[in-house]
């Protein structure tokens, strides 16, 4: 076999082997590099490079070496799963850079982390003033994660003390003009329902680029034809408005009537309506 052909064959074979190894090592290898994955990545890459370009080497040795370097990280990860001490050595521990709002200069020195590095990482986390940080840690992967001080944290409904309705994931039921049966079944709906909803909106399924159903069974669509206006869902706002109107009406009746008995009845029911409205408002917004 001429040299160039051998390189072609080797490239192809090692590409497949490399693909399988990367698959086998899992998603962790792709996302974050801890010490060990960093080493394995470099070595596996080098082994493949040498054996592909140098026709003098024995490809069987190459595959053998790859097998070893595949088994080592898998074993290490398995052991790391079992023991915390092992994990600390092979996958590293996070280093605290800021604690209680104070920068830990000693820890920074240990990691050879300069002030500029720190500021850069804080900016990466959208923090421009070190005084806004309560706690920051340098992860083994080299990324800095931080907890802003309470007053600098984004506002959540919990901080505001308001109730919100729980929301489950939406199901994508129409893609590129085709109904997707499995997501429909997940939302316990069927194609008949979909057709009815689309007829209500006065659109045909071929014109729908993307259609999703939220956990309340409300269908929202995006059309190919962007000039067509899709009606906004009105059921919930209408319900809330009509409940509010009833409540106001009852209050009005209570004021208008002269019979004490009727007044009490209207008042009691107006209060009941108010409670119902307070309870349901988060769910209708």
């Amino acid at each position: 076999m001429p040299g160039w052909a051998e390189i072609l064959v080797r490239s192809f074979v090692f590409l497949i082997v490399l693909f399988l190894i990367t698959k086998g090592l899992g998603k962790k290898q792709m996302s974050q590099l801890n010490i060990f994955q960093y080493i394995t990545g470099i070595v596996i890459g080098s082994i493949v490079a040498i054996h592909v370009t140098d026709v003098a080497t024995n490809p069987v040795y190459g595959i053998l070496a790859l097998a070893v370097w595949f088994l080592i990280p898998v074993t290490v990860e398995f052991l790391a799963l079992k023991s915390k001490g092992f994990r600390n050595i092979f996958q590293g521990k996070g280093t605290v850079l800021i604690q209680n709002g104070k920068i830990m200069e000693d820890n920074m020195k240990k990691e050879r982390f300069t002030t500029d590095n720190l500021l850069e990482e804080l900016r990466n986390n959208q923090v421009f003033n070190a005084a806004d940080v309560e706690f920051a840690v340098l992860e083994p992967t080299g990324k800095v994660n931080l907890l802003p001080k309470k007053e600098n944290q984004p506002i959540t409904p919990k901080i505001l003390g308001t109730n919100v309705s729980p929301e489950k994931e939406s199901q994508t039921v129409i893609m590129d003009g085709n109904a997707l049966l499995e997501p429909l079944a997940n939302a316990s709906l069927n194609t008949n329902w979909l057709e009815t909803e689309l007829t209500k909106m006065n659109v045909s399924i071929e014109n729908v680029f993307l259609g999703q159903v939220d956990s309340d069974g409300q269908l929202t669509v995006d059309l190919y034809d962007d000039k067509l206006a899709v009606p906004e869902p009105t059921e919930k706002p209408l319900l809330l408005a009509s409940m509010k109107k009833c409540q106001a009406d009852l209050e009005l009746f209570a004021l208008a009537t002269e019979s004490q008995e009727s007044k009490d009845l209207y008042q009691k029911n107006s209060e009941r309506m108010q409670q119902a409205i307070d309870k349901i408002t988060p769910y209708l917004q």
Partner: peptide, 22 residues
Amino acid sequence: VKTNDQETEQIFKEVQHTLKTV
């Protein structure tokens, strides 16, 4: 009936009950 969430369904039913009394 339409919602998939147990808690939401419960709230809707409670409010429906209140409305029924009214």
